[in-house]
Each structure stands twice: as structure tokens, then as C-alpha cells.
């Protein structure tokens, strides 16, 4: 089956229909909700969505048996995202091959949080990326904590952030002392993988176009989307998109894609802004002294040399 990979050039070309529609209990200014909305907009009506347990499961808890999903949606367990995608895609392939369902491209999008896709043994994600189901897309919506249970650290929580499991205290001052796990690089390292990318909410269209590329890549694909979380990051809800922009412009969040074995940066901040522009807006970093933030700036600078090198050579390296 052929893969359509529509690339939008302007926001005005975007289809007006939403498949994750209005009417749910997500926070005002919820980054994951916006990502969910944009991803499904790009995927279109012929899509099945699977939602591992997480903020976007519980925040969408029905009120009086209502549902915001205009396309099929099914819950899966926190540790089941990868397997759920494989099972769903396998069913469509089997039914179509055996003539039990009409031939058609059906997208399968699994929307896992950082708890669901970066922790809990990758939730079968690694298995999913090793199969050849063509229209299977895994989206990691990364709000950098277990937000639903009250902001607990995950393995993608950045160094220095306070969470309820890694509070900044009198003795342990820093908060989270683990470095953020780079899940997209791990996924890109799977053999024969067609499409892996990172994204956030900004720049406009970037996320949607990457979704389109992933679904049309002919293989399973993975997009790691950074999504600001007003509640967990201690930020005003109107800053959600602005924070996405600053994450990119400070180089703390690197936008790239790995397509058919070739790495490429999709956005090069120039000049790159100091990371304090991003971090100082967020209450979760408020306890960090300027010296610590400068240290993060230095680390970011060093890492960017590697990112630039990867962009030149098209090869994966580990910053």
C-alpha cells in the first residue's frame, strides 16, 4: 500500500476538522492536548488511536459517558503502548490479507507519555519499532514528568527540575539529579527503522509534517514531542507555545529527523539563545542558582557541536 505524505506549507492549508475535539478535562493551556490535536489532524480520519495510561488518559476521563474522540480510540495499559500498536496493526494486516476487511491504508497512532514510552521497559516500543507495519506511528508526548499522578519524575525529567519525587530540599538541593533520556536516539538506533523525529509545538506545521512523513514512511515511526505542561512546569498556561519556541531556540530541545538511515537537523537556532531564557520562565527550575543554569548552558553548547557534526555527516552519534 502506498504512503501519502502530505507536507503543509502554510497553516492555512491545514484541514479544519479535529479528531480530538473540544470537550475534555485537560488543563487550560495543556501542551499534550494540543499535540494530540495536531497529530490526529495530520493523521486524518482513517486512524485508530491508542492511549496508554497517563495524563492524557485520565484528563480525558469521561464526564457522564461522553467522548472527545471523533475516530476510534482505545485505552491500553501504561506498559502496553508498543504492543497495542503492533496488535492493532497486525489485526488490520491479517484481516486485509485474508480478505476479511477491504484493503485500505489505516493509520495506527499510539500516544504514550514519558511514563509510558521512556520508562516501564519502553512499553514494548522497542518491539514495535522492530516490525515492519507501515502505518504505525508512536508518539511520545513528553511533558517531562508523571503529571497525572501529581508531577513525579520520569526518566525524561530534565536535570535540576523539582518534582514531587525529586523535590529541592535543604540537603538535596538540585531536585532531579538524572539527565534526560534521549528516547528518539534510542529508537533511531533500531535496525532498518524508517522514520524517527523529534518535535514540539513550535514551529507551526513542523509536528504535523513530521507525523505525515512518519505515517508515509513505509515502516513504523516514532516522534518524540516535547510538550509544555503548565501544571508540572509551574508556568502560566498562556506560555505553552512560547515555551516550545524557547526550548527550540535555546537548543535545549533539538529538532531533528532520521529518515531511512540519514540524520538531519530540522531547525538550527542561530544564534542560539542562552538556556536561561527558557529555564527562568519555569517554576520547576526556580531553585537553581545562576551558576547551575550557566553549567547547563555549557553542556548544551558542547552537545551542539555533536548535533552539528551529526547534521554534517548524517550519521547518528550520542551527544
Amino acid at each position: 500500500m502506498s504512503g501519502e505524505r502530505r507536507q503543509f506549507k502554510s497553516v492555512k492549508e491545514v484541514p479544519p476538522e479535529d479528531y480530538y475535539t473540544s470537550g475534555r478535562r485537560t488543563c487550560a493551556g495543556c501542551g499534550p492536548a494540543l499535540a494530540y490535536r495536531l497529530v490526529l489532524k495530520a493523521a486524518g480520519v482513517n486512524t485508530v488511536v491508542l492511549g496508554p495510561t497517563g495524563c492524557m488518559y485520565v484528563a480525558n476521563a469521561h464526564q457522564f459517558l461522553t467522548s472527545p474522540y471523533a475516530i476510534p480510540w482505545f485505552h491500553t495499559q501504561l506498559g502496553g503502548g508498543g504492543a497495542a500498536g503492533v496488535g492493532t496493526a497486525a489485526a488490520f494486516r491479517a484481516l486485509m490479507k485474508k480478505g476479511k476487511r477491504r484493503l485500505e491504508d489505516v493509520n495506527v497512532v499510539v500516544f504514550g507519555g514519558d511514563g509510558g514510552f521512556a520508562d516501564i521497559g519502553f512499553a514494548g516500543l522497542s518491539m514495535g519499532m522492530s516490525y515492519d507495519y507501515p502505518r504505525l506511528l508512536y508518539v511520545l508526548y513528553d511533558n517531562e514528568s508523571y503529571a497525572n499522578t501529581g508531577i513525579q519524575a520520569s526518566s525524561t525529567t530534565p536535570w535540576g527540575a523539582t518534582t514531587t519525587f525529586t523535590p529541592s530540599g535543604k540537603v538535596r538541593r538540585i531536585g532531579n539529579e538524572r539527565m534526560k533520556k534521549n528516547v528518539a536516539l534510542i529508537m533511531a538506533a533500531h535496525p532498518g527503522v524508517r522514520y524517527v523525529a523529534t518535535a514540539t509545538l513550535w514551529p507551526p506545521l513542523d509536528l504535523m509534517n513530521k507525523v505525515s512523513k512518519g505515517l508515509g514512511s513505509g515502516g513504523p515511526s516514532f516522534i518524540h514531542v516535547l510538550v509544555p505542561c503548565p501544571k508540572g512546569w509551574f508556568t502560566p498556561p498562556d506560555l505553552t507555545v512560547e515555551l516550545s519556541r524557547l526550548a527550540v531556540e535555546t537548543g535545549l530541545w533539538v529538532l531533528w529527523e532520521h529518515e531511512n538511515g540519514r540524520f538531519r537537523l530540522t531547525y538550527k537556532p542561530s544564534p542560539r539563545k542562552h538556556v536561561k531564557n527558557y529555564m527562568q520562565l519555569q517554576g520547576r527550575f526556580a531553585h537553581l542558582p545562576a551558576s547551575e543554569i550557566d553549567m547547563i548552558e555549557e553542556v548544551t553548547e558542547r552537545e551542539w557541536e555533536i548535533w552539528a557534526e551529526m547534521d554534517r555527516t548524517g550519521k547518528l552519534m550520542v551527544p
Partner: peptide
């Protein structure tokens, strides 16, 4: 049939559950 070599028993039963939901 699609035979999936799963990466764990948890994945196995998740795969079966979701394939069943589609109608397989």
C-alpha cells in the same frame, strides 16, 4: 496469520487484546 514474536508476556497479551478489538 500474523504471528508476532513479542518481547514479553505482557506484550503478548496486549497484542492479542488489541488485535481482538479490531476484529481479528
Amino acid at each position: 496469520a500474523e504471528i508476532i514474536v513479542a518481547d514479553s508476556e505482557h506484550s503478548q497479551f496486549e497484542i492479542a487484546k488489541h488485535a481482538s478489538a479490531v476484529g481479528a
